[in-house]
């Protein structure tokens, strides 16, 4: 599989690389820049969707707390929590895999419980507290599950990783996984196509001690 960076326009590489950002910061900058070009202004995606557009018929107002921040959104009731996070709030850490509740890539915590955000309608989350992978770290201090995933190399391509991490955080708070077999069973809602399961298991076992 080729490096996705190869497909980026040259001007992005020229403007971003010399300043020395990490790969993640770099990709984040490009993503925000892309949205900016798309709407012809420097507005953040959230501001664009919520402040510059009139409410359409049938829209509902939803109050949410996302990663500790209060949000008030006007939404078509069809919009899933996954699409709200990614398309309206530019929280693209949560991934869309199957979009049918079969892969777990979209896992987030709603009121502390892990759920599939692809099958969750945002209008049904009135006043809910949502935690995504972006909300797990405390400032620069990674969540123990994040740190353990890094230490144990618990991913290859990384696409399922934010869902794996959120799911593991939910798993540890549920407190039902004692043995290796139980961890495997209770992480079965998160598919890893690269097959990093062995290292995911090791990471969760280490994080379990820290959490």
């Amino acid at each position: 599989m080729s490096d996705p960076d190869e497909n980026l326009p040259a001007q992005h590489l020229n403007s971003a690389v010399p300043s020395g950002p990490t790969r993640r910061e770099f990709i984040g900058q490009v993503a925000v820049a892309g949205i900016g070009f798309g709407i012809g202004s420097n507005l953040h995606a959230e501001d664009y969707f919520q402040k510059t557009r009139a409410a359409a018929p049938g829209e509902t107002t939803v109050h949410l707390e996302i990663n500790g921040a209060q949000k008030t959104l006007r939404l078509d009731p069809r919009v899933t929590l996954l699409d709200t996070l990614r398309e309206k709030l530019a929280l693209t850490g949560t991934k869309k895999g199957c979009d049918h509740g079969q892969c777990g890539a979209c896992t987030v915590l709603v009121n502390g419980r892990r759920v599939n955000s692809c099958l969750t309608l945002t209008v049904a989350c009135q006043n809910a507290k949502v935690t995504t992978v972006e909300g797990l770290a405390q400032g620069d201090a990674l969540h123990p599950v994040q740190a353990a995933f890094l230490k144990h190399d618990a991913f290859q391509c990384g696409y399922c990783t934010s869902g794996q991490i959120c799911s593991a955080v939910g798993l540890l708070s549920e407190g039902h996984a004692q043995s290796d077999a139980e961890i495997r069973e209770l992480m079965s809602g998160n598919i890893c196509r690269c097959g990093a399961y062995q290292n995911i298991l090791a990471a969760i076992k280490e994080a379990r001690v820290a959490v």
Binding site: G101, G104, T107, R113, R114, V115, N116, L119, T120, S167, G170, L171, E174, L186, M187, S188, G189, N190
Partner: peptide, 9 residues
């Protein structure tokens, strides 16, 4: 049945 996430919902 299902997965932990789905059972939570």
């Amino acid at each position: 049945g299902a997965s932990p996430q789905l059972r939570n919902m």
